[in-house]
């Protein structure tokens, strides 16, 4: 695979506090890479550094084999072969959709490609309108086409779906993915939403307080998190001691207790009809039951340990009952 973006030892501080601390990773051609982290983890700073909107304290950024940032080089944002799409889309309100799309320096030279993009994104009938006259989903697609029309080697997206309501979000997400994949675009997407990262990206980078916490495929990060922070960032989970399931190969050391722990998602806790299975088990007294329509979220307690299971057929369960849960490990 050929690398489009290579970031090595990148650091940036604000008021002596690290926003990014010695970050290194690579993006390959055609790859959609998501950068996930809680707020203040440094993900937006990373995007600004790559776009040239901020100057790093240390480190090197190479875009398409050309250094754009190191100790002696700083390429201006307008000279970098990457375009950015912000979460508020930042469509120029004084220009029509058409003018917005052709605003990019290279766009007027790529007329046939832009025409294809416009029909691919299904925004042909919005071209003469102003940004405030089109829907949120259309605005998102216009912002995407505007960036792509400039024919960049790398597309940077800052929380591209966070401005959309949940009904629209799913639709736009699948449209976005289909456009980007058809164009074989290399994309770096910053998001705080683990679901976006899981559904869109080929590779996920997890940041915590400016440091790289984990890089892997979204599936592996979800299933085998390397820290409690990563586990919790990617949805509801139970952090259970490794000794309960010695067969697990994916444990991590919990910072607060120094014990080896395993992330077990609620759906991995099941109630078996037979008692002879070889699966590891945990016995707990049910303290609460929530019906969420398609299943039951069962909260249980085993000594000091509180955990949550998602049980499909839980209508017979009762609060106060003691139940043995089996842990399904992959």
């Amino acid at each position: 695979m050929n690398s489009i973006l290579s970031v090595s030892n990148l650091s940036k501080t604000y008021n002596n506090i690290y926003a990014l601390n010695s970050l290194s990773f690579e993006c390959n051609k055609g790859e959609i890479v998501s950068v996930v982290g809680s707020s203040g983890s440094g993900k937006s700073t990373l995007l600004k550094l790559i776009a040239g909107l901020e100057i790093p304290d240390n480190g090197k950024i190479v875009l398409k084999d050309k250094p754009i940032n190191d100790e002696s080089i700083f390429v201006k944002p307008e000279k970098r072969d990457c375009d950015i799409v912000f979460q508020d889309f930042s469509l120029f309100p004084n220009m029509t959709v058409d003018e917005n799309i052709y605003f990019g320096k290279n766009a007027p030279n790529n007329k046939s490609m832009v025409g294809n993009l416009v029909s691919l994104a299904n925004i042909s009938d919005t071209l003469s309108r102003y940004p405030h006259q089109i829907s949120g989903g259309q605005q998102q697609r216009v912002a995407l086409v505007r960036a792509l029309a400039n024919n960049p080697s790398l597309l940077l997206m800052d929380e591209p779906l966070s401005h959309l309501d949940s009904a629209l979000k799913e639709k736009v997400r699948s449209e976005l993915l289909s456009i980007l994949k058809k164009l074989d675009m290399t994309v770096l997407i910053v998001t705080h939403d683990a679901e976006d990262a899981l559904t869109i990206s080929d590779k996920t980078i997890v940041l915590n307080q400016g440091r790289l916490e984990q890089v892997d495929t979204p599936r592996n990060i979800y299933k085998y998190p390397k820290s409690e922070y990563v586990a919790r960032l990617f949805g509801k989970t139970n952090i259970l001691p490794l000794k309960l399931m010695p067969g697990s190969k994916h444990s991590f050391k919990q910072k607060s207790s120094d014990n080896k722990m395993v992330s077990v998602r609620p759906h991995q806790l099941i109630i078996e009809s037979g008692t002879n299975s070889s699966l590891p088990k945990i016995k707990g007294q049910i303290t609460n039951i929530f019906n969420n329509g398609h299943s039951y979220n069962v909260e249980a307690k085993c000594e000091d340990l509180v955990f949550m299971a998602e049980i499909k057929n839980g209508s017979d369960l009762k609060i106060g009952e003691t139940v043995t849960f089996s842990i399904e490990l992959d």
């Binding site: 600004k48 776009a51 909107l53 944002p77 970098r80 375009d83 930042s90 120029f92 766009a107």
Partner: peptide
């Protein structure tokens, strides 16, 4: 800053961004 940042990432210099984006928006 988003309008300015987007315009710069689309290849326009700071001066061009002032005349094409910032000033018309403040008209």
């Amino acid at each position: 800053s988003h309008f300015i940042n987007v315009a710069r990432s689309l290849g326009h210099s700071g001066r061009a961004v002032f005349w094409k984006i910032v000033l018309p928006l403040s008209r």
